[in-house]
Design a protein around this nucleic acid. Structure first.
Lengths: 217, 217
DNA sequence: TAGATTGTTAATCGATTAACAATC
DNA sequence: TAGATTGTTAATCGATTAACAATC
């Protein structure tokens, strides 16, 4: 996290990543059933520390909580969604129309989180075509044109690790501002570009290691 | 992390999660091209701290590194893979044959990480059928029988958040030892069961928040 | 030998948690 | 008022990093 971030936003990445959990709990369990919710209840349900929850919520809630009452559920939902930018729809393109890329393009669940995947790109001509839910796969030469036309800010990388860096470079040249990287590799980017790694190998490592060594527990 | 873990394994979850990055770098960049590699080179490439890399590698490498020489690439690959349990194939079942579940079943990339997805399960009869690469989707009533027959240890949850806990309970009752949870919700499990959360909403939160607030950077 | 590189012990840093005063 | 709950300041904890001695 750079210095300028720290000044503007006093929230850690960890805290930011807890927000979807709060949001899910509030929307599925609280909304409509109760007007207010206390940090203690949230903490107990999600198995977090009460103070941590209060700190997290304090950093995104406009109106704050009220002693003896807690936080207004509807306000909190609105504030978290606004903080996360789920109001603005974030348009994205996927580069790499292999199995994982196509799966993500076909997945409609992202819309709940304000993400709209517009199109896919692939350097292999055989991959070009149209997906079930109407998303097209283009050749790489169309990347910049389409990104510019539709003002896309997010690039999703689902190519093999070996070509991830060059794809990343192309996406940045085309103008995306943030990258969601599914390749299990480190990406080199300018300071003003955000890279979020979604490394399934990382999760699998935890699972697999547990099973290999800790079955006797 | 429980106490018993600490005694047996002096490696943090963070360190464990860096292993796939080391492995990928070693296999794609070092293997065949150089016999030895120094922690400094790895650290520079992956943008990590040199001491951190040495500590991480020390905790998994049998032979350790040699002053002035570094670590033997092939040995290191073998040691990390063995530590991560990528040698044993870990069998898994998926519960929830919606879009995400089917996508994961169709994805063959997991085999590189020692994971083999055997079958899918869904409570909705309409979802039952066969996938392109031969994986079948069964009704929930077959879960325990198939898990027992094939000695499956990993359960993957790709149902909506609202039903994730009950699916989790069923998986544990059926006998799985570790759960890979794609639902954006906290799961309640006995102490001896490992839950690894793969929450895409969490990653999206980081991206989306960045774009909503930090575009001016 | 000198220098590169490892592995370990101590210092730093940041996040979490505890203690507590403020407030409805 | 008394008690529940918030928000903040201080203490703790664990991971990262720096310093350095050991070794090839």
């Amino acid at each position: 996290m750079s210095d300028s971030d720290k000044i503007l936003f006093t929230i850690s990445k960890q805290a930011l990543q807890r927000m979807p959990y709060y949001l899910n709990y509030l929307k599925t369990t609280c909304k409509g059933k109760m007007q207010n919710v206390s940090s203690r209840l949230i903490a107990n349900t999600l198995h977090l520390n009460e103070v941590q929850v209060r700190k997290d919520l304090a950093s995104v809630s406009r109106s704050g909580g009220k002693p003896k009452t807690g936080f207004a559920v509807d306000d909190l939902i609105r504030d978290i969604e606004s903080f996360l930018g789920y109001n603005n729809v974030n348009r994205a393109v996927i580069v790499g129309a292999g199995q994982l890329g196509r799966a993500l393009m076909a997945y409609t669940g992202f819309e709940n989180y304000g993400l709209e995947i517009i199109a896919g790109f692939d350097s292999n001509e055989n991959s070009i075509g149209t997906l079930p839910n109407g998303k097209k796969v283009f050749g790489m030469e169309s990347l910049k044109r389409i990104r510019d036309e539709l003002n896309v800010h997010i690039g999703i990388i689902t190519v093999p690790a070996a070509s991830a860096q060059s794809v990343c470079d192309e996406l940045i040249k085309a103008g995306v501002r943030a990258i969601w990287n599914f390749a299990p590799t480190h990406l080199e980017v300018p300071e003003n570009i955000l890279v979020q790694n979604e490394n399934m190998a990382t999760s699998l490592a935890v699972l697999s290691n547990h099973l290999a060594h800790r079955m006797n527990k």
